[in-house]
């Protein structure tokens, strides 16, 4: 491990770059169209679904968008924030353009994904899952469930495309490509 990568690792990752902010009008429209609760119970039940839907479309779900959700459903803002900050899938900041999702499910782990993850952390200069590399190019996620393709484990998806039977060399290749 060279001096420089070590220095990179210890440095805190810079804040992700401001990406396209979420269009709150769009969110309001979505809420009007699809999330109309019949009673307060349903209003509470729909909050998580609405947040997921926003994230599905924009890649993340900001606090402002959460405020629109709370407002529309008529529930307290802190209840929506509580969900936003608890669930592993929900992000309040956008990802980089490239997203590397490493599967670290049990099968992939047994087949060696643990080492690959550590190697990727090194290469990208990050220290924790969900972080974006210092140059803002790649966001790395670790998926600790199973991505459903154990037969080609260890596997990862990069920008939605699956790569299987990964080896350190293959991972290096992919990362070189992404960081280019």
């Amino acid at each position: 491990m060279s001096q420089s990568t070590e220095a990179q690792r210890v440095a805190p990752a810079p804040p992700p770059q401001p990406a396209q902010p979420i269009d709150l009008g769009w969110v309001q429209h979505l809420m009007d169209e699809e999330f109309n609760a019949r009673d307060w119970r349903e209003a509470n039940e729909l909050a998580l679904l609405a947040l997921m839907e926003i994230q599905e479309h924009w890649g993340y779900c900001s606090e402002d968008a959460a405020a629109v959700v709370a407002d529309h459903l008529g529930i307290e803002l802190q209840r929506v924030y509580a969900l936003l900050t608890f669930y592993g899938d929900l992000r309040t900041t956008p990802r980089a353009d490239n997203v590397y999702i490493a599967c670290d499910g049990a099968a992939c782990n047994v087949l060696g994904s643990g080492q690959l993850v550590e190697r990727l952390f090194d290469r990208l200069g990050i220290i924790r899952k969900g972080q974006t590399s210092p140059d803002g190019k790649v966001t790395m996620e670790i998926f600790s469930g199973c991505m459903g393709a154990c037969q080609i484990g260890p596997m990862a998806t990069v920008n939605g495309k699956a790569y299987g039977n990964l080896t350190p060399e293959k991972v290096d290749q992919i990362v070189n490509e992404l960081l280019k």
Partner: peptide, 26 residues
């Protein structure tokens, strides 16, 4: 009705699942 989880293993536990459906933290 269909409800979707948000990627927290613990929301599979019986009582946490119910909280999750209710829109509480699981």
């Amino acid at each position: 009705r269909v409800r979707i989880g948000g990627g927290a293993y613990i929301s599979g536990e019986g009582s946490a699942l119910i909280y999750s459906v209710q829109g509480d933290r699981p």
